[in-house]
Design a protein around this nucleic acid. Structure first.
Lengths: 263, 263
DNA sequence: CGCGGGCTTGAGAGATATCAAAACTCGTGG
DNA sequence: CCACGAGTTTTGATATCTCTCAAGCCCGCG
């Protein structure tokens, strides 16, 4: 039934490859090299678990292949605050590789699968495949843009809009990697995680979710997020997905000139 | 009187070069190349003014040489929210160069000076000088870490601690580029900018500043920030400067292996 | 001297936090 | 199969921080 068989073995390409290919048109050699590199060290995560150890620079870079992960900032009193979430195709810990003293940790949620590459391997890949390197810069900048957007969300919107905005973002990102099934998304975060990401208390997040549910905008039950009318939710959230860099066409006009090696 | 003459013409090196040299030990050829590239297009800013145009990808990358700049996220209703501030040595708009549709604008404050490099020139520089490229990655990741910290600040701390934290960060960064003069810092931001960066209203920020002033922690007058006891302010703010990557020694252990070209 | 932008202060409203407890879910062991 | 218990969600009542609106003040500038 798969009519794409004649075109390319796309199904075999990891989500990261497909994503990067949207930012920068990669050659088939580029894609193969990255796909291969991502196939050498794959790990399945049965239960929620930490990726690496707190405050030590990872020697490998981890890429989500399946499932969800969360990045927490660890405060000095031991508290944790959610600062990012990762879906398939996202690089989890590049920021820690460059930090002298990483102050974040990544938690892999149950059911996640990651591919890991030694940082030297990634570096060599970047040198041999400059378009891949450029795409990784784009990706890192988009990750940054997402953080900025979370900051704006927390600083600027009221609780209802915050939660709605976060959910819209998750759906947009999930959509881009084919995780949405007619308005439904397997959603492993707890309400307290959502609260944390929105700068709210769990109690108040619960009330907000109820209010959204009562308005028929959102149903969150059994680890399943259902949004009957995404446009309506986006209106509540003032959500504009441009920052995610997802619309393939508008993607970075193929300007091959800006490159900075990832050393 | 300058006893450093015999060592190196450090004074001539732009702040960015000195900063990058802390992340990655640069060769003198690296430093010269970057210094030269930063000397070709220098611009003085008399009055507050926009860098580039809203939502157009810059063709040149701007680097602060002197003074202050602010980066705003532009919301759909035309409002602006402060998402970053730049001091000498900071790259202003690299994130816009990679974005398909930049949603931020950079404002240069009166008295700022910037150096601009065409992005192709930066790319070539990165290829010819891999250590510079790696340092630019580090710098971008630190910029990201600062954004994360602002997010935590807004989400996690009360108004007093927020303002104190932001001021601590500014002082630490200013210190690193030699802008502090015995506990005093020329401080061009208005209270409403501070408020914006902290996710507070200007009114409440004013009250917080008064409270900090009454406790003898902060004096902000005549565009001059005075902090008699930085440790005391840091305690109020729960400030830990590690994320700024400023302590030269702890800086990225010279691991030359991770490079991704900036294409 | 008058004017405007930024700073300061006040009073009241409102959104969100805090504290507390009940209801529900799900895996586990008896 | 049921009971248990930990973790999660839900609800309620109250406290409080921050916002909103409004006015006065200060100072530099035309």
């Amino acid at each position: 039934m798969n009519m794409e068989i004649g075109i390319a073995p796309h199904a075999a390409e990891p989500p990261l490859v497909r994503k990067l290919n949207r930012y920068v048109a990669l050659s088939s050699r580029d894609r193969h090299a990255l796909t291969h590199a991502l196939s050498l060290d794959v790990r399945n995560v049965r239960f929620i678990s930490m990726l690496g150890e707190a405050s030590v620079r990872p020697t490998k870079v981890a890429v989500m292949t399946d499932g969800w992960a969360c990045c927490y900032r660890v405060l000095r009193d031991g508290q944790r605050r959610l600062v990012a979430c990762y879906l398939p195709g996202d690089v989890c810990d590049l920021h820690m590789v460059f930090a002298a003293k990483p102050n974040t940790i990544v938690m892999l949620l149950a059911g996640a699968r990651i591919a890991r590459m030694p940082r030297e391997a990634l570096a060599r890949l970047g040198e041999a495949h400059p378009r891949v390197a450029r795409a990784l810069w784009c990706d890192a900048q988009i990750a940054s843009a997402i953080t900025r957007e979370w900051m704006i969300n927390i600083a600027h919107r009221d609780a209802r809009a915050r939660v709605a905005h976060l959910l819209c973002e998750f759906m947009a990102r999930a959509d881009a990697v084919g995780l949405m099934r007619d308005g439904r998304l397997a959603f492993p975060l707890m309400q307290s995680d959502l609260a944390d990401a929105c700068g709210l208390t769990a109690t108040h997040t619960n009330r907000v979710l109820r209010s959204l549910r009562e308005d028929g905008l959102v149903a969150l039950r059994d680890h399943m997020l259902t949004v009957p009318d995404r446009a309506a939710l986006a209106a509540v959230a003032d959500f504009c997905p441009d920052y995610l860099g997802l619309d393939a066409d508008a993607a970075a006009p193929d300007v091959p000139e800006l490159r900075i090696p990832l050393h």
